[in-house]
């Protein structure tokens, strides 16, 4: 492999790390810390030092944050939504400046939108975005529908789940998928008012498995992959959702995040609590067969032997500590870890 690895110790554990999406391929990214006495969201810039052939992150702005950062999702290049273990959610703006350095500012603060009945704050465990729509979920089992243009809660589904909801993603503009501690996955239609019942419910597997991350296929949005706390990747075709299409046992620990490569949708990146970060690619050049044109070309939808069709590359020697988050921008992968370091893997073979 020809990629290069650059690690930097940052004196705090990073729970979420995201490239700032923009068309001109900048090097900005944000990190959210966890387990710190005072947590924060930081904006960084990867500076390339051509002379020394070195790349290092340069801190651009530090925004203090209340609680652990449990998720960060960019809406566009200037706005991102984040969720906090203090039960709040924030919409933050990246403010470019010609005179000073770029800064971050909270545009909207949805304070304490997740709360238990006894008054305890409930961690907001995840947030997902679709255009300006934002959905948050929490340990209190409720779902909030927010919008980036309003500081009000548009809709709240109280007691949506009797277990704590841990992950959420948008499937369509009106549909979200949630997963809970018990391993139940539920699809919710946000248009249906006055109901706190999901449109469908299914289980990730028989026993005691908690999904730890969800993602959908970049071009076939009905194809969803879940990573779970036992290290398995499960593929679902939501057109027929009761049973998974296939289950790949891979990682040693819980899978912290999975992400498809939007440019090469067959490829997937995953990282785990055992300190692994992997790049899944299809084996060789899949020759399109003329004889069987109707065969499903998406390898992830293959019901069996999917393992034989995939190559797995490790992007980094296994760390002794969990890798909590990863993000991809073209051929550059960044990840944030529990050894209080962030890593840039440059020039990943795609």
């Amino acid at each position: 492999m020809s990629h290069s690895l650059h690690g930097t110790f940052v004196s705090e554990k990073i729970n979420k790390i995201r490239w700032r999406p923009d068309s001109y391929n900048s090097h900005f990214f944000v990190t959210g810390s966890i387990d710190n006495v005072e947590n924060n969201i930081k904006l960084w810039d990867f500076c390339e030092n051509v002379e020394e052939d070195d790349i290092y992150p340069f801190l651009v702005y530090n925004l203090p944050y209340c609680g652990d950062i449990t998720e960060i999702k960019f809406i566009n290049s200037d706005f991102f939504a984040s969720s906090s273990s203090s039960g709040s959610a924030y919409l933050t703006r990246v403010i470019p400046s010609y005179s000073e350095s770029t800064s971050l500012k909270n545009e909207i603060e949805w304070k304490n939108i997740h709360q238990f009945k006894n008054g305890d704050a409930s961690p907001c465990t995840s947030v997902t975005v679709y255009d300006n729509d934002i959905v948050t979920v929490g340990e209190d089992g409720s779902i909030n529908l927010l919008n980036g243009k309003s500081s009000k809660i548009l809709r709240k589904i109280d007691d949506a789940d009797s277990c704590s909801i841990q992950c959420v993603i948008f499937l369509k503009h009106n549909e979200i998928l949630t997963s809970n501690l018990r391993g139940q996955m539920k699809i919710w239609d946000l248009r249906v008012q006055d109901s706190n019942r999901p449109t469908s419910t299914f289980m990730i597997s028989g026993e005691q498995v908690t999904p730890t991350c969800l993602t959908y296929h970049p071009t076939q949005r009905h194809l969803v992959i879940t990573g779970d706390d036992l290290g398995a990747l499960t593929t679902w075709d939501l057109r027929q959702n009761t049973y998974p299409i296939n289950v790949l046992n891979g990682h040693e620990g819980a899978i912290s995040e999975v992400q498809f490569n939007p440019e090469y949708p067959d490829q997937l990146f995953s990282c785990s609590s055992a300190g692994e970060i992997w790049h899944w690619t299809t084996k060789g050049e899949a020759v399109p067969s003329l004889l069987t044109p109707n065969v499903e070309t998406n390898v992830w939808l293959a019901p069996d032997n999917v393992k034989n069709k995939l190559d797995v590359f490790t992007l980094m020697p296994t760390l002794g500590k969990p890798i909590n988050s990863l993000d991809l921008n073209r051929n550059r992968v960044i990840c944030g870890c529990d050894n209080e370091a962030i890593y840039l893997i440059n020039g990943v073979n795609l």
């Binding site: 238990f116 009945k117 006894n118 305890d120 409930s122 340990e139 209190d140 089992g141 789940d161 009797s162 277990c163 704590s164 809970n180 501690l181 018990r182 005691q208 908690t210």
Partner: peptide, 16 residues
Amino acid sequence: SMRRGRLGNALSWALK
């Protein structure tokens, strides 16, 4: 979880 009125979640932890 039980103190917070989330009996279902408490049961999930017990089963875990």
